[in-house]
Structures are given as structure tokens and as C-alpha cells.
Amino acid sequence: MKVIFLKDVKGMGKKGEIKNVADGYANNFLFKQGLAIEATPANLKALE
């Protein structure tokens, strides 16, 4: 799943980066902790 990092995550990515991560990792950790959001077309447009 493609995500946009909202904060730096050690060993994974930096704020503003777009990366592919495992679905479970994104849903169970990154999204719940507020560290990333899904890289949807609307979210990608908002990032620009």
C-alpha cells in the first residue's frame, strides 16, 4: 500500500515521502499512530 509519511519514522521514511509499505503495517501502526496517510489521488494532490 502506498502511504504518505506525516512524520519521520525511523527506518521507514521521512515526512512528506511516498513509499510502499505492507498493508498490515500501514493499517495497524502508521495510520493508528497518525504517522502516515494513504496515498490516494486526493491526498497526493493536497501534498503538492
Score class of each variant (00 low, 15 high):
M1C: 11
M1H: 02
K2F: 14
K2M: 14
K2C: 15
K2Y: 14
K2A: 10
K2P: 07
V3Y: 01
V3D: 00
V3H: 00
V3C: 02
V3G: 00
I4H: 01
I4R: 02
I4Q: 03
I4L: 10
I4T: 01
I4C: 05
I4N: 00
I4P: 00
F5K: 00
F5G: 01
F5N: 00
F5M: 06
F5Q: 00
F5T: 00
F5L: 09
F5Y: 06
F5D: 00
F5E: 00
L6V: 08
L6G: 00
L6R: 02
L6F: 03
L6I: 11
L6H: 00
L6N: 02
L6M: 09
L6Y: 02
K7R: 14
K7Y: 14
K7D: 08
K7T: 12
K7Q: 13
D8M: 03
D8H: 08
D8C: 07
D8V: 03
D8T: 10
D8W: 07
D8N: 13
V9T: 03
V9I: 09
V9F: 04
V9S: 01
K10N: 10
K10Q: 13
K10T: 13
G11R: 05
G11F: 08
G11Q: 05
M12H: 12
M12V: 15
M12G: 07
M12Q: 10
M12F: 14
G13C: 06
G13Q: 00
G13R: 00
G13I: 02
G13E: 01
G13N: 01
G13P: 00
K14D: 06
K14I: 10
K14H: 11
K15G: 04
K15C: 10
K15A: 11
K15D: 01
K15T: 08
G16I: 00
G16C: 08
G16V: 00
G16P: 01
G16F: 10
G16N: 09
G16R: 03
E17Y: 04
E17M: 08
E17A: 05
E17D: 10
E17L: 04
E17R: 03
I18D: 02
I18V: 12
I18A: 04
K19I: 11
K19N: 03
K19Q: 07
K19F: 07
K19R: 12
K19Y: 08
N20M: 15
N20R: 13
N20P: 06
N20K: 12
N20F: 15
N20A: 13
N20Y: 15
V21K: 01
V21C: 10
V21P: 00
V21L: 06
V21A: 02
V21T: 02
V21W: 03
V21R: 00
A22E: 14
D23G: 11
D23A: 15
D23C: 15
D23W: 15
G24I: 14
G24M: 12
Y25Q: 07
Y25D: 08
Y25E: 09
Y25W: 10
Y25P: 08
Y25H: 05
A26H: 05
A26E: 06
A26S: 05
A26Q: 05
N27M: 15
N27F: 15
N27H: 14
N27C: 15
N27G: 09
N28A: 14
N28L: 13
N28W: 12
N28G: 12
N28Q: 14
N28R: 13
N28C: 15
F29L: 07
F29Y: 12
F29W: 14
F29P: 02
F29K: 06
L30C: 01
L30Q: 00
L30Y: 02
L30T: 01
L30S: 01
L30N: 00
L30V: 02
F31G: 01
F31W: 03
F31N: 02
F31D: 01
F31Q: 02
F31S: 02
K32T: 11
K32W: 09
K32V: 08
K32M: 11
K32Q: 09
K32G: 06
Q33E: 10
Q33A: 10
Q33T: 10
Q33M: 15
Q33W: 15
Q33P: 01
Q33L: 15
Q33I: 09
G34P: 01
G34E: 08
G34Q: 08
G34S: 07
G34T: 03
G34N: 09
G34H: 11
G34D: 04
L35C: 05
L35R: 03
L35E: 03
A36K: 00
A36Q: 00
A36Y: 02
A36H: 00
A36P: 00
A36I: 06
I37G: 01
I37H: 03
I37R: 05
I37D: 01
I37Y: 04
I37V: 12
I37F: 05
I37A: 05
I37T: 06
I37L: 11
E38Y: 06
E38W: 07
E38F: 05
E38S: 06
E38G: 04
E38A: 13
E38Q: 10
A39G: 05
A39Y: 11
A39D: 02
A39M: 05
A39R: 00
A39F: 08
A39C: 09
A39E: 02
A39T: 02
T40M: 03
T40G: 03
T40L: 05
T40I: 05
T40V: 04
T40Q: 02
T40W: 03
P41H: 09
P41I: 10
P41D: 11
P41Q: 11
A42Q: 13
A42L: 09
A42D: 13
A42I: 10
A42H: 11
A42P: 05
A42R: 08
A42S: 11
N43T: 06
N43C: 08
N43L: 07
L44T: 06
L44M: 12
L44Y: 04
L44C: 09
L44V: 11
L44K: 05
K45L: 14
K45N: 10
K45F: 09
A46E: 12
A46M: 15
A46D: 09
A46L: 13
A46T: 10
A46F: 12
A46N: 12
L47S: 06
L47A: 08
L47K: 06
L47R: 06
L47Q: 09
E48F: 12
E48N: 12
E48L: 13
E48H: 15
E48V: 13
